[in-house]
Amino acid sequence: MKKKTASIKDVASLANVSIATVSRYLHGQLNRMSAETADQVKNAIVKLNYVPNAAARQLITHKSKMIAIIVVNIADSFSTELYKGANSVLERAGYATVMLDTDSQQAKEKQLINMVGLNTYDGLILQPLSSDVAKIKSEVRRDLPIVILDRQLKDSPWPQVISENFAASKKAAQYFYQHGFTQAIVFSSAIAIASTRQKRLKGIKAVYPQVTIFELDEKMLQHKEIFAKLEKILAEKAEKTVLFFLEERWLLLFLPDLIHANLLPNKNIEISGFADSSLISSIWPSAKMILQDPYKMGQKAGAIMLNLLANKQNIPHTSMVKTSFIKKD
């Protein structure tokens, strides 16, 4: 026979106090009762193994102590590090976080944002697929604190945390140009939809106006075809070339092919781009990478979310996290 679950009424009866007193205890309002009364309630809760009804409490307080974090793709270490950084800050403040993955699909992003609005999340940290403010606004179902991650949105009503993109890619491009690399080839996911990639490409084109660009399908369907085209370009043009990857995962995809085809090591070919971890440097130590810090970006987004929840003023509209250009020979 199933054991009956204890109710708040049972706790109040055993502790010989009112239901209101038990409720105050559960909400941490110990200053509104004596230490003796608090001990009575605590002992009754332990004895009855009472578990508060979270759903009922949310109806009363309109707070769930839960934050939704929507990321672009959990297969990308950048997205998972964003989540881990935000969670490290929010968890310490007593919030539970839920990571939701759009899998780089616009329809799924809309579905998830809608779902967050229909549930009792206290806030949303969003790494959006696109930089379209109107589209995001249309998907948000209710007024709740929102922090944007990894996108610089024009006319955004929400605070946003971004990585250094334009200046970082320009600095790296200048380094290669000064060292005699006259050709730049760029690998990226679709550039037009994301401000992050647009800024990175703009930084490279500030040094290399004529750039060969390979835009890659998120499902990596054209991998072999694109590599064959790359080999042909490198064979036809005998000039020093830098292969610039706007996202770490594309370099991780192509690096084995570059090594296997004996394109690396080669004094006329260098690899570079944005890295989210030390993985590239571990595989190919001479790679000259722009090292991002997605964990720190997530931490900053978590801190901003706490400030929004506390209704603090003067929250920066845009917070930038610096990058480092690593040039090991």
Rank of each mutant, 00 (worst) to 15 (best):
K3T: 10
K3W: 03
S7Y: 06
S7I: 01
S7T: 15
I8L: 13
D10G: 11
S13M: 10
S13A: 15
L14I: 13
V17Y: 00
S18K: 10
I19Y: 13
A20D: 10
V22W: 05
R24C: 09
Y25P: 04
Y25K: 08
H27E: 14
R32C: 03
V46T: 14
V46W: 06
V46D: 14
L48T: 06
Y50P: 05
Q58V: 12
Q58F: 10
I60H: 11
K65L: 11
M66C: 11
I67E: 01
I69S: 00
V71Q: 03
N73L: 05
I74M: 05
I74W: 01
F78K: 03
S79E: 05
L82N: 07
Y83E: 01
S88A: 08
S88E: 02
S88R: 02
L90S: 02
V98Y: 05
L100S: 08
D101K: 14
D103Q: 14
S104F: 00
S104C: 05
Q105H: 10
Q105N: 13
E109K: 08
Q111Y: 11
I113G: 04
Y121R: 03
Y121D: 00
L126V: 07
L126E: 03
P128K: 11
P128A: 12
L129N: 04
S131L: 00
D132M: 06
A134N: 12
A134F: 08
K135D: 04
I136S: 00
V140P: 02
V140G: 03
R141Y: 06
R142W: 06
R142L: 06
D143L: 09
I146C: 02
I148G: 04
D150C: 02
Q152Y: 05
L153R: 03
K154Q: 13
K154T: 15
P157S: 06
Q160N: 07
V161R: 05
I162N: 04
I162G: 03
N165P: 08
S169H: 05
K170D: 01
K171N: 10
Q174M: 12
Y177L: 10
H179N: 15
H179S: 07
H179I: 09
F181T: 06
V186A: 08
A190M: 07
R197W: 08
Q198E: 11
I204R: 11
Y208G: 01
E215M: 12
L216R: 09
L216G: 00
L216A: 05
L216V: 06
D217W: 12
D217P: 06
K219G: 01
Q222D: 15
K224L: 10
K229Q: 15
E231K: 15
I233L: 14
E236H: 12
A238Q: 14
E239T: 14
E239S: 14
L246A: 10
R249C: 01
L251V: 08
L255K: 09
P256M: 03
N262I: 08
N266Q: 14
E270I: 00
I271R: 05
I271W: 01
S277A: 09
S278D: 15
L279Y: 11
I280F: 10
S281M: 12
I283H: 07
I283A: 06
W284M: 11
S286W: 08
A287I: 10
I290A: 07
L291I: 14
Y295E: 06
K296V: 11
K300W: 00
G302I: 00
A303G: 04
A303C: 00
N307V: 00
L309A: 01
N311L: 08
K312P: 00
Q313T: 14
N314S: 13
N314A: 12
T318F: 01
T318Y: 00
V321C: 07
T323L: 05
